[in-house]
C-alpha cells in the first residue's frame, strides 16, 4: 500500500500522481503554441528528441486563470503520447501512508472528475489524481 507519489501544486492545492506514471520531470524551455487547440493545450515542446504536448493543469481542470510557466513539469505517457503537465510547482516524491479513500461529499466540481481519492502522507492528506483524465481537459458541460 505504500506507494511512491509525486507531490504537485495545482491552484494552491496539494495533489499527487503515482510516481510510476511520471517518466521524468523536465525544465520547460521553448513551448511552441498550437493554433486552434483547446486552451488547456499550451503547445508542444521537445524532450530528448521527442515531442511533448504541454497541458496547463489549471485550465484542464476548468479553473480560471493561468499557470505560470518556467517551473519544472512532470512528464507522463498516456496512450503512447507524452504530456508535460504545467503545474504551479513540483514538490517532492514521497510515500503514501494510507490506502486511497473517498471523501464524503466529493472533492468539488472541478476536481471530482480527475480524482482517484485521498491518501494520507507525512505532509497531510493529499488528493491523488488520474493524469489520463486530467489531460482530456474540462468536459463540455451539457447546456
Amino acid at each position: 500500500m505504500n506507494e511512491l507519489i509525486v507531490l504537485l501544486h495545482i491552484d494552491d492545492r496539494r495533489v499527487a500522481i503515482p510516481a510510476a506514471e511520471v517518466q521524468s520531470v523536465i525544465e520547460l524551455e521553448d513551448i511552441y503554441p498550437v493554433p486552434r487547440a483547446p486552451d488547456f493545450v499550451v503547445g508542444l515542446t521537445a524532450m530528448r528528441s521527442r515531442s511533448l504536448t504541454v497541458i496547463d493543469c489549471r485550465r484542464a481542470l476548468g479553473i480560471a486563470g493561468e499557470t505560470a510557466t518556467g517551473e519544472r513539469a512532470p512528464v507522463v505517457e498516456i496512450a503512447g503520447h507524452l504530456y508535460a503537465l504545467l503545474v504551479d510547482a513540483v514538490d517532492d516524491v514521497i510515500e503514501t501512508q494510507s490506502d486511497i479513500r473517498p471523501v464524503a461529499g466529493g472533492f468539488g466540481k472541478e476536481w471530482q472528475r480527475v480524482a482517484r481519492g485521498m491518501v494520507e502522507t507525512d505532509r497531510g492528506p493529499t488528493l491523488l489524481i488520474n493524469a489520463s483524465l486530467l489531460i482530456e481537459g474540462p468536459v463540455a458541460r451539457a447546456a
Binding site: 521553448d30 511552441y32 487547440a37 488547456f40 515531442s51
Partner: peptide
C-alpha cells in the same frame, strides 16, 4: 511524423508532428 495527442488531433487542422533539425517541434 509522429501521431499527435488526441486533444491536438481534435482541432482537425493537423495530421501529425515532427521535430526539425533544430529540435523545435513542428505541426
Amino acid at each position: 511524423i509522429k501521431p499527435l495527442a488526441p486533444a491536438v488531433m481534435q482541432t482537425g487542422a493537423y495530421a501529425g508532428t515532427t521535430l526539425l533539425d533544430d529540435g523545435s517541434p513542428v505541426l
